[in-house]
């Protein structure tokens, strides 16, 4: 597993089961005790899913930067207006060279 990720490297499940000569049982949602997709939890589970929701858009929409002749420069100005800290950081970085 890579640190700071949830990327687990493991074998393909079908091959693992085949190598282990495992008996594959097919389960239905009913047998597994799934109480409906809005809850997506299993009966008897220690954790209980209470709400499932989709993320909402940010209240303030992204500020558009209009296509201009010098779009790169216009974008930089907009960035530094909104977030002055990177400008100071970048100038400090430039001074080091």
């Amino acid at each position: 597993m890579l640190d700071t990720t949830i990327h687990v490297r493991r074998g393909v499940m079908a091959y693992i089961l085949c190598a282990a000569r495992a008996l594959v049982l097919k389960w239905s949602t009913l047998k597994a005790g799934v109480q409906g997709t809005s809850k997506c939890g299993l009966r008897g589970s220690l954790t209980i899913v209470k709400h499932v929701f989709a993320p909402s858009p940010r209240a303030a929409k992204a500020a558009p930067v209009k296509a201009a002749e010098q779009l790169g420069e216009a974008l930089i100005k907009t960035i530094f207006k909104r977030q002055p800290k990177p400008q100071t950081d970048l100038l400090a970085l430039a001074c080091r060279f």
Binding site: P55, P57, R58, A60, K61, A62, A63, P64, V65, A67, Q70, L71, G72, E73, L75, I76, T78, I79, R82, L90, L91, L93, A94
Partner: peptide, 29 residues
């Protein structure tokens, strides 16, 4: 992405990125 970005530019990134790089480079020159 425009639902959660703070600043959005509807344009071709392949064209904008070199311009943006050049503009930053000029600022930091």
């Amino acid at each position: 992405i425009f639902d959660f970005a703070h600043i959005g530019i509807v344009t071709d990134a392949i064209l904008l990125l070199p311009t943006l790089t050049a503009a930053f480079r000029a600022r930091l020159s």
